[in-house]
Design a protein around this nucleic acid. Structure first.
Lengths: 243, 243
DNA sequence: CGGAGCATGTGGTCGGACCACAGAGCCGGT
DNA sequence: ACCGGCTCTGTGGTCCGACCACATGCTCCG
């Protein structure tokens, strides 16, 4: 069997810096909440220029493991954090816009993830979250609600359920996937024929979903949310085609 | 209802540059394969310094939508690409190391995603991919195979199935999630009592999985892979506890 | 006609300087 | 003794100009 050679280069210094910091994270030496030394100190320690260090820090910031703020005091400087959601959201949004993923792919992923979310929520969701979800559903049920506001609340509803399912990873993924199609859904909803009727139908789904989750009927909630999502994405596919 | 105010700042120029380039991507003006102007040209056009522009480009590079290489000719410069896998992998690996996600979360996510992968593969997988999977399984079946080599082949097997399921998004997610626990699985396998027996058991699973996929038995394959993954993660949880 | 060598353009790096901002600490008035 | 405002200091953020390494394209000489 021929040995496959990997490019071993990466002579770019900021990659090396990145690697070095990553190692510390993997080794457990850097944990969430820790502060990095000031850039002006760390750069010479690592033997690189401040620019190269900054580019590495920017990468970590993009990934959502670092935040930096200027100023002075305990909150200033670069800190290790755990904020994957924004990073993942931006990643999927951009790649979706670039056509890395088809709408069908996103649909299937949403179905799979949200089925799991609702099943988890039916088992573990704390009452506070369900009360909050109730408020969101009520907000969506307001007569004369705009498409944009509805879309926002709908996103928050699905993300909230995902978060309350007790699984941080599927929650992050669900939220990111939902966010990535947010503009698309918005445009689709704007093109819908009878918007009030559509909103009523979606709201009926939401209300039933919430009831099912409250009474712990996981599988039923999963089936319904699958139907709910497939229906919505169906209008996404057909809507623009009809116009 | 009180209006919730969002922080509107982000006066950091590289954020603005990033936003500007993102807009072009969302608007479809920048597509995969397009080349960006040289940094020295683009920076003054955007009215920012080269450093700020570079930090924005670095962000895009970590997201996997941009690659840059020096030199001259048609391949040089910064190009828009679609390579989400590495980016997502690094993201999940780091956050897993930081404890954003528990092992249980990853387990459930893997189950959900890979069930979908195998069901999709049973329907759409091209024969070439299955032949390649066959080779990987054969590789894992070699007597006396090391833990590390086995882990590599196992990763490639699961990722290959995910890719052949026809869904780029779940494939990316599956691959990233599998990658994120790769070092953990490696350590767990190293601690296993009777490694040859474990390898044989896992291989039996793989062989059956492949057969089920070949004959289009999606649901059965999904059930088996769920059992397969839960079993492996079970040793992950118990192994370190026992030692 | 062909190959060696130079010119050019690209990203990558570096060092230094300055800016804006927010806390820390001082200093004065009350 | 307290409190308010002022200044000082340290942080990230930005900018500029220069240089480096490298790959390509061109030229010039054999």
């Amino acid at each position: 069997m021929p040995v496959e050679w990997q490019p071993v280069q990466q002579s770019r210094t900021h990659e090396l810096v990145l690697r070095s910091i990553e190692e510390r994270v993997f080794a457990g030496e850097l944990r969430a909440g820790d502060r990095l030394p000031p850039e002006r100190e760390l750069a010479p320690v690592l033997g690189v220029s401040r620019s190269a260090l900054r580019e590495a820090l920017r990468v970590l910031e993009t990934i959502g493991v670092l935040v930096a703020q200027p100023g002075r005091g305990p909150d200033a400087g670069a800190r290790i954090v755990r904020n994957p959601d924004d990073a993942l959201g931006r990643l999927l949004r951009l790649h979706f816009a670039l056509g890395s993923y088809s709408l069908h792919d996103v649909l299937e992923a949403r179905v799979v993830l949200e089925r799991s979310s609702f099943e988890g929520a039916a088992c573990h969701a704390p009452d506070e979250d369900l009360d909050e979800a109730e408020e969101l559903v009520a907000g969506m049920a307001e007569p004369g609600i705009g498409v944009s506001a509805f879309n926002d609340l709908d996103t928050r509803f699905h993300v909230l359920i995902a978060r309350s399912s007790g699984n941080a990873l599927t929650s992050t993924l669900t939220s990111a996937v939902r966010e990535s199609v947010r503009p698309l859904i918005l445009r689709a909803l704007e093109d819908v024929e009878d918007w009030p009727a559509t909103a009523r139908a979606l709201n009926a789904d939401h209300r039933t979903l919430l009831t099912l989750v409250r009474e712990g009927s996981g599988p039923e909630a999963a089936d319904l949310v699958e139907w709910h999502i497939r229906g919505l994405h169906g209008t996404l596919v057909e809507g623009p085609t009809a116009s």
